Simulated assay, not measured.
Amino acid sequence: MRTPLAGEVTAGRADLAIGPRPSRWDRHAGVLGREEIVVAMARTDPLAAEAEGVTFALIAGEPVVHYHPDNGLGGWLDDVAAQRDVRLTAATRTRQATTAAHLAAAGLGVALVPTTAVHASFPRGRLKPAGRTEFVRGDVCDRPRLASSS
């Protein structure tokens, strides 16, 4: 999946983008850091009882609070699920990870969210470890540069 940010870089309207690595990206990219991903859910969700965390195999049959295609986490989530032969069922889509966590806590489904999206204000629900994602910097160096006039 190519994200809108990647499209801006490819079209030459941006010099770099920061976000999850697009699944189809043949240009330079470097890892800026890694972020823990957790599964947010309602306290009453049967997955909340999983002692070892939640796997994609367990999520396969669950409704998922997914991300809008403009959010790079949506493509990342689909790619990781596909690598594990899991097809996710979106209950709804949102542009914001914080909103996804709150919708999951309200019982709409489960949501995979970066820990930075879950603040102390997370009102209810459970969080379970799920894995990590990388946030990368895509750097485009093949655009023609304007010659400096001296």
Rank of each mutant, 00 (worst) to 15 (best):
E134H: 03
L103Q: 04
Y67T: 00
A120E: 06
T3H: 08
P22K: 03
L16T: 12
T55K: 04
H68P: 12
A82M: 03
R93H: 09
G33W: 04
E8V: 12
S149V: 12
G138T: 13
T3A: 00
G107M: 06
H119A: 03
R95W: 13
A104I: 13
G72L: 11
Y67P: 00
R27Y: 14
P69V: 09
A101P: 00
R143Q: 08
A57Q: 08
M41S: 05
T116N: 07
M1P: 09
L146H: 12
D26L: 07
H119T: 12
A106T: 11
R124A: 15
V39L: 08
L77S: 01
R43D: 15
A97C: 04
V39C: 06
A82C: 01
A120N: 08
G109Q: 11
V118Y: 07
H68L: 06
L47G: 07
P129E: 04
A11F: 05
A120G: 07
A82F: 01
L77K: 00
S149F: 15
S148T: 11
T94G: 01
G125I: 15
G107T: 09
F56L: 10
N71T: 05
P46G: 06
R93Y: 11
E35W: 15
H102F: 15
D78C: 08
T92S: 07
L146C: 08
A120P: 00
A11D: 08
H66A: 13
A97Q: 07
H66N: 09
S150D: 09
T133Y: 09
T44E: 14
G53F: 14
A82Y: 01
E62D: 06
R126G: 11
A147T: 10
G12W: 13
S148W: 14
G53R: 14
A51G: 12
R132M: 10
A40Q: 03
Q96H: 15
D85S: 03
R87L: 04
V38R: 09
P123D: 13
